[in-house]
Design a protein around this nucleic acid. Sequence first.
DNA 1: ATGGTCGGTTCCCGA
Length: 263
Amino acid sequence: MPTLKLASWNINSVRARLPIVGQLIEAEAPDIICLQETKVRDSQFPHADFEEAGYVHRYLHGQPMHHGVAILSKVPLQEERRYDWQDNGEARHIGVRLPNGVLLENVYIPAGGDVPDREENPKFGQKLDFYERMIRWSEALDVPTIMMGDFNIAPLECDVWSHKQLLGVVSHTPLECETMERLRASNDWVDIGREFVAAPERLYTWWSYRAKDWRKSDRGRRLDHVWVSPELKSQVKAHRVLEDARSWDRPSDHIPLITELEL
DNA sequence: ATGGTCGGTTCCCGA
């Protein structure tokens, strides 16, 4: 039974983050890396850097400027599909099949703008609609699946620095949290983050760039997640977040998540 | 106290 080490990281531009992606590879040597917000068209992806690091299998879904996801792997995978859950062509998903048939879905769910109101802010409605399309996909899933990425919702009270102060802030509104829970329930998904760091223990994956001292103010949110189908739950052997990465040179505002599975 | 900072097709926009 080989152990597979997976990393998930919203890196907010793969080109700007190349040095610290290298730092992650040196520190953790993951077998497979799921990146979100690569912000690069596929033809300009920094292939050589990942080739040199041993990630000779790459599966990209990028676009100019915004969004973009990538799966980088030391082991050969089979590209399965790129879902357009956004329904407007934005590059927010890529899925692959692992050698044993398990599906790996890498997703970047939209942030949803600033105002939590469909009428006033179309981006908020697009985010909810994205979740609804995922729910329809998830309900029909009949293959063991690992899903990871930036879900852009912090569902539990303990997933944000202040539940009360964030109730009206996009990423933690009751409507978003309920919608996310409907997605979770639709395939009985297991929230691996909370399997390893049980609520109500503090667990964040994102801190705003705008804080003077992110660690001191610690106004974090758990926006990034790893979910697995229930039949895979017992095969997940380890999971942790690399909080120190928020202090690496020219950091992302998100930190990497590391998950080890026996497959 | 209602700001603040990133990245990119960069003097705006999305996050």
